[in-house]
């Protein structure tokens, strides 16, 4: 993911409610098509949940990266 240009980062670490996945949906809804959005989550479950939703809706999962105690999940809005 090193070469990916991220347009917007959502830091959802420490977000119990609404949580990283809801924050991801909110950001994707509000962004123009083509936007690359990074969601930071301290919840490992996000690495399954967010990609599952992205696949269902038809956006693109750019990648997932584990960092120091949290995960970066990068998504591109394609429609």
């Amino acid at each position: 993911m090193e070469n990916v240009k991220i347009d917007k980062t959502i830091d959802a670490r420490g977000s119990a409610c609404p949580g990283p996945m809801m924050e991801a949906i909110r950001a994707i809804k509000a962004a123009p098509v083509g936007t690359v959005i990074e969601v930071l989550s301290a919840d490992k479950g996000s690495t399954n949940d967010i990609p599952a939703w992205v696949k269902k809706v038809g956006h693109e999962l750019v990648g997932i990266e584990e960092r120091d105690g949290y995960w970066s999940i990068v998504v591109k809005k394609v429609k």
């Binding site: 119990a16 409610c17 609404p18 949580g19 996945m21 809801m22 949906i25 479950g45 949940d49 599952a52 939703w53």
Partner: peptide
């Protein structure tokens, strides 16, 4: 519900 469970709080 928008996410993959019944409420944001697991």
């Amino acid at each position: 519900y928008p996410i993959n469970r019944l409420h944001a709080l697991e």
